[in-house]
Design a protein around this nucleic acid. Structure first.
Lengths: 175, 175
DNA sequence: GTCTATAAGCAGATAGAC
DNA sequence: GTCTATCTGCTTATAGAC
């Protein structure tokens, strides 16, 4: 998988040679498909990742029943950050030159994710302020859990975090 | 500052040329001081960062009064992650080759931090289980907040997170 | 669309003068 | 300890054949 390379090595740590090896194509062929080189490849991978986020995490939030929508979205998060050592592509790619190139778009995606989470939480009966606070809290915990996954080479921190976020939503539902 | 380069660009994104420029020395001079090249420089910077963590964040946890110790440690965290856009060196450096080189040591540092936090929390009157859970929770939120700081190019997420963690400790004290 | 070959520049790394 | 000069290999990127 192309995205795995960027996820593991970031933008600066990924070379066209590596990408050629992974895709099974020559470097020249890669330049044929992506004249902008690895920057363009990273961009395409990011766009694809945005689509996955939309499908797995954001779309479920549109369900008519907000509590269930939040549950489904958390399930989607578990799939979105898959694998034995889940890592965040947007995080990996946002170092060095990648920060200059992609930070704005990534910030926009995070902003949308936060808004949609807050909307569902609000729809479930919370004030707008509470909903916003919870959405930020949830995203913060998720990102932190992913860092700990990288440190501990495990997906336990993420799974544990998702359980607790699930519990938070459940607590809300019983209210 | 040398550490800022690695913090912003990671290991793969940092070149000896950049380091030479930042230090004002030639590449050859850098190799005189660090025969292992930038890997050795990164290691030295990490060791120095470990000392800063010890001084600012871990030592305060040794205070006789655990609640106050936790407050002081959180203050230390605010200083440890300084600047307008606080970022975690250990996080930045743990991509690509840096992961292979430094993950074990970083995991050890995180483990110690977690243990020491849990010890203080336990000393403040919590079960060992509760204390461990809170320590992991606090570290997770901190790391997540730092990611959001990078995304939003601001230190607001970290400051807000520290306020909430302060509140958690205060809540414990009033119990 | 794919390849080999190749250019030009930058990376890590060393030799040797001062 | 510091420098300039240099080497070698890798990286980005292109030319041009098939």
């Amino acid at each position: 998988m192309l995205s795995a390379v960027f996820r593991l090595h970031g933008l600066d740590g990924t070379s066209m040679q590596t990408l050629a090896h992974v895709t099974g194509l020559s470097k020249a062929s890669l330049y044929h498909h992506f004249p902008g080189g690895k920057d363009e490849m990273a961009e395409k991978v990011l766009v694809e990742e945005g689509r996955r986020l939309q499908t797995l995490v954001l779309s479920p939030l549109d369900g008519p029943e907000p509590i269930n929508a939040l549950f489904e979205s958390l399930k989607g998060v578990a799939e979105f950050y898959g694998g034995d050592v889940p890592q965040c592509l947007m995080n990996s790619i946002m170092l060095g030159r990648g920060q200059e190139l992609f930070r704005d778009r990534i910030a926009a995606v995070v902003g949308i994710w936060c808004q949609r989470l807050a909307a569902a939480y609000s729809k479930a009966g919370n004030s707008e302020e509470e909903a916003n606070a919870w959405a930020l809290y949830a995203l913060q915990r998720l990102q932190g859990a992913l860092i700990l996954c990288r440190v501990e080479k495990s997906r336990q921190p993420l799974d544990h975090c998702l359980e607790e976020l699930h519990g938070d939503v459940q607590f809300l539902a019983e209210d």
